[in-house]
Amino acid sequence: MTERQHQLATVRGGNASGPERLCAVTRQSLDPKDLLRFVLGPDGAIVPDLDRKLPGRGVWVGCDRGLVEKAVRNHTFAKSLKTGVKAPADLADRIDALMVKRLSGTLSLANKAGLVIAGFDRVFAALEKGSVAAILHGMDAAADGRSKIDRKFKAIQGSRGLEARIVDVLTIAQMSLAIGRGSVVHAALTPGGLSDRFLEEAERLTRYRSPATETATIFSEAQSEG
């Protein structure tokens, strides 16, 4: 296992969220938090049920873009539901967009609750105070600004035996829109329920875009580098 794979596995750790379900593509039994649920909508269309609460018989697919694309190609939904339903060809893109919308909405709520610190200087100052639960970077942010913040955050968290949670799944434009100010490249979350919810949603989007065999973009570290 590579270091990045270990990082993603660490993020996925935690209590099980319920009885296992069978992935319709791989036929593996997994915890619901590692799966996406789909139901047949009133209009006969396949509907992603990200909250896993919609009524009706569910079809479960691993939280992996490639598996969703395979389910569409192989008509997995029609076979599982025993109907002639045809999933839209862009279903994988629609799910990604839904996840981004949910994540951005949660970030907006966290900001309104006073849990978001935006801007390089303000984030760096917050690190000095030790009140940061996670660091956020625009996924298109320059590496030099990111590395300076990350090194300090990892060192601080490592000295305390705490995880250094760093997220870069939203673009600068998406972060800026959610926070309601121009050009938010770097931000930080302070501890709180909405921060925890944001991190859970970010981890799911990361998992969807980056299977365990690829690079993770949200990770946990208990010790500083070096």
Score class of each variant (00 low, 15 high):
Ala113Val: 07
Ala173Cys: 11
Phe124Met: 02
Gly114Cys: 02
Gly158Leu: 07
Val72Lys: 02
Ala155Met: 10
Ala78Asn: 00
Leu81Ser: 04
Met99Tyr: 00
Gly130Asn: 01
Ala113Pro: 13
Lys148Phe: 08
Val123Tyr: 04
Gly84Trp: 01
Met99Arg: 02
Gly130Asp: 02
Gly58Asn: 07
Ala89Pro: 12
Ala97Glu: 12
Ala110Asn: 13
Arg102Gly: 13
Ile149Tyr: 01
Arg73Ile: 06
Ser108Val: 03
Ile156Gln: 13
Val100His: 14
Leu54Lys: 11
Pro88Ala: 10
Ala178Val: 01
Arg102Ala: 15
Leu54Arg: 12
His75Arg: 15
Ala92Gly: 00
Trp60Asn: 02
Lys82Arg: 15
Ile135Cys: 06
Val167Gly: 01
Ser159Thr: 10
Asp168Gly: 15
Lys101Ile: 11
Val100Asn: 11
Ala92Tyr: 04
Val61Glu: 07
Leu54Asp: 04
Arg165Gly: 06
Ile149Asn: 01
Gly161Arg: 12
Ala142Ile: 09
Ser104Tyr: 07
Arg165Ile: 14
Lys148Arg: 12
Val167Glu: 02
Glu163Phe: 04
Leu107Ala: 09
Pro88Glu: 13
Arg102Thr: 14
Ala110Glu: 11
Asp150Ala: 07
Val61Phe: 11
Lys148Asp: 05
Ala92Glu: 01
Ala126His: 00
Ser159Val: 05
Asp150Thr: 08
Ala126Gly: 00
Ala173Thr: 12
Ala125Gly: 06
Lys152Phe: 04
His75Gln: 15
Arg52Leu: 07
Arg102His: 14
Gly180Pro: 07
Gly145Gln: 11
Gly105Cys: 11
Lys148Pro: 04
Ala87Gln: 08
Gly114Phe: 00
Ile135Leu: 07
Lys129Arg: 12
Ile156Glu: 11
Ile117Leu: 11
Trp60Ala: 06
Lys112Ala: 10
Ala164Asn: 13
Gln157Asp: 08
Thr76Asn: 06
Lys154Glu: 11
Gln174Ala: 09
Ala113Arg: 14
Val123Ala: 03
Gly158His: 05
Gly161Lys: 08
Pro55Glu: 12
Asp150Met: 04
Ala133Ile: 03
Val68Gly: 03
Lys152Asp: 04
Ser147Pro: 00
Ala97Phe: 06
Leu170Cys: 15
Gly158Asn: 03
Lys154Leu: 09
Leu127Phe: 09
Asp144Ile: 14
Arg151Gly: 04
Gly105Lys: 07
Gln174Arg: 10
Arg65Asp: 06
